[in-house]
């Protein structure tokens, strides 16, 4: 217990204190300059009626879903590709892992240039017949662009996690399956996938948590635009609180975001537990 004490104290002061304060604030109107005034559920009613909140909510869900799915698929794909016997695998892995080591701000600044209408990405895609894509200014492309950066940034990390999972599967299983005449697809479907289930669960939950908190990428790369195309809840919270000085309202949006993440995590837990049961 003594070992946990500093941590408990730390979390009380720096996390739970502020968190409860924020939750309390969500029932007040507070512009940071006059003392907060109690307004009950007014902030919640008001944000639910606000089209920008609804747009940001939809964007957040799309972003969470998009990045989680692609991070998981790309991460798993890369891990399977690395997990073959042969030279150079480790070097490739280390190289890809570098995307994770780059400071996030550098990531944003670099990609902003790469996405320019005449930038590197379009120079690559041009010869493939794509023409000019306005990545950051076309409302249909801006969110995919942000998801692309997210996957580029995080997939290699989860690749390593998947790889660790793959390495725990005893090679004898595969040998036995091969003797039974199972081809690669069946081996993946009936052996790798079920055994990787706990790892996949971990990846999905953590990737969703990460994406729910995304802030700097849309903040620096698109500023939430064009229009509201990439305005996610965390950005809306920041703007509402610090640009519009509506801390109570910002707190209410945070509580909603907190609830969403909580529900998502719990739902994922249930889903995965059930599928684990089916597999076993």
């Amino acid at each position: 217990m003594a070992f946990v004490m500093p941590t408990i104290l730390f979390f009380l002061v720096f996390k739970y204190g502020p968190m409860l304060w924020a939750m309390g604030l969500s029932f007040t109107t507070y512009d940071m300059m006059k003392p907060p005034r109690w307004v009950g559920l007014e902030n919640y009613e008001s944000i639910l009626r606000d089209p920008i909140f609804r747009e940001a909510l939809a964007n957040t869900l799309v972003y969470i879903a998009g990045s989680t799915i692609f991070i998981t698929l790309v991460g798993l794909g890369l891990a399977l590709a690395i997990n073959t016997r042969g030279p150079g695998r480790r070097a490739c892995m280390s190289a890809m892992f570098l995307t994770n080591i780059m400071p996030i701000l550098a990531v944003c600044l670099v990609w902003r240039f790469l996405f320019h209408p005449h930038g590197l990405l379009n120079q690559f895609l041009g010869p493939l017949g794509f023409g000019r894509l306005d990545w950051l200014t076309d409302s249909a492309l801006a969110m995919p662009a942000i998801i692309l950066v997210t996957v580029w940034r995080f997939a290699p990390y989860f690749m390593v996690v998947f790889l660790a999972g793959l390495l725990t599967i005893p090679p004898e299983y595969y040998e036995a399956a091969e003797i039974d005449g199972a081809n690669a697809v069946r081996r993946f479907r009936y052996l790798t996938l079920p055994l990787l289930m706990p790892v996949t669960f971990f990846v999905v939950v953590v990737a969703a948590l990460l994406s729910a908190r995304i802030f700097l990428m849309p903040f620096i790369i698109t500023g939430g635009g064009p229009g509201n195309a990439t305005r996610v809840l965390s950005m809306l919270i920041y703007e509402t609180g610090f640009s519009y000085m509506k801390m109570g309202r910002a707190a209410a949006i945070s509580v909603v975001l907190f609830a969403i993440v909580m529900v998502l995590t719990l739902a994922q837990m249930r889903l995965f537990m059930r599928s684990e049961e089916e597999y076993s």
Binding site: D134, T137, D138, S139, G225, P226, G227, N228
Partner: peptide
């Protein structure tokens, strides 16, 4: 700013 973006970039 949003309105201008919608008009100029997305032809709204």
């Amino acid at each position: 700013h949003r309105a201008v973006q919608k008009v100029m970039l997305n032809n709204a």
